[in-house]
């Protein structure tokens, strides 16, 4: 069996190319051609106008976390610590307390995720027996001016809505 050999053409060795100036003008011509076409009509751009135009995120994308709630607004999390136990980056810190809203007995009083430590592996979502933590907010860019702001508290995690409908999320393999 012979090995398939593909010979790569090496540019830049001919006399014309080694003259350099001609190639510079050819390059500039290409740039200006694109500039003028895009200037007159920018609907066929090859690039996205980020951040004005956001990329389309699939429901399976692991973005920033959120804590889901029941229909009546009570939090689904029962503070079982499965996500904290499973977290390889140890970025989740939970404190549990007595639940008073009539559902089960246990509720998280504190639920902190340090996004600087998080590696977005999604193990917390997989470990959760209550479907209480999801990474479906569609938020992929988290910025802050100091370390403390990068620590998501229970209220922040709870108030962020999901970016997808229930059907889309379930279809995504959850």
């Amino acid at each position: 069996m012979s090995i398939k050999v593909k010979t790569i053409v090496r540019y830049g060795r001919s006399w014309q190319e080694r003259l350099y100036l001609i190639e510079v003008f050819k390059g500039m011509a290409c740039t200006f051609r694109h500039f003028i076409t895009n200037f007159l009509d920018n609907s066929k751009l090859y690039v996205r106008h980020y951040p004005e135009v956001k990329p389309e995120i699939t429901p399976r994308w692991r973005g920033r976390h959120r804590l889901t709630t029941h229909e009546d607004g009570t939090i689904k999390c029962v503070a079982c610590y499965m996500c904290q136990t499973n977290c390889p980056a140890q970025c989740i810190q939970i404190e549990a307390g007595e639940r008073t809203d009539g559902r089960t007995e246990k509720v998280p009083l504190k639920f902190d995720i340090d996004l600087l430590e998080c590696i977005y592996c999604g193990y917390c979502v997989e470990a959760c027996p209550m479907d209480a933590i999801r990474m479906d907010t569609g938020i992929f860019s988290v910025t802050a001016t100091n370390r403390e702001e990068m620590k998501m508290t229970i209220d922040q995690l709870r108030s962020t809505p999901g970016a997808f409908s229930e059907e889309e999320y379930k279809k995504g393999g959850a």
């Binding site: 029962v78 503070a79 079982c80 499965m82 089960t104 246990k106 027996p129 209550m130």
Partner: peptide, 9 residues
């Protein structure tokens, strides 16, 4: 089987 909220788990 409420192991998630059970202290004995």
């Amino acid at each position: 089987t409420d192991c998630p909220i059970c202290d004995q788990a």
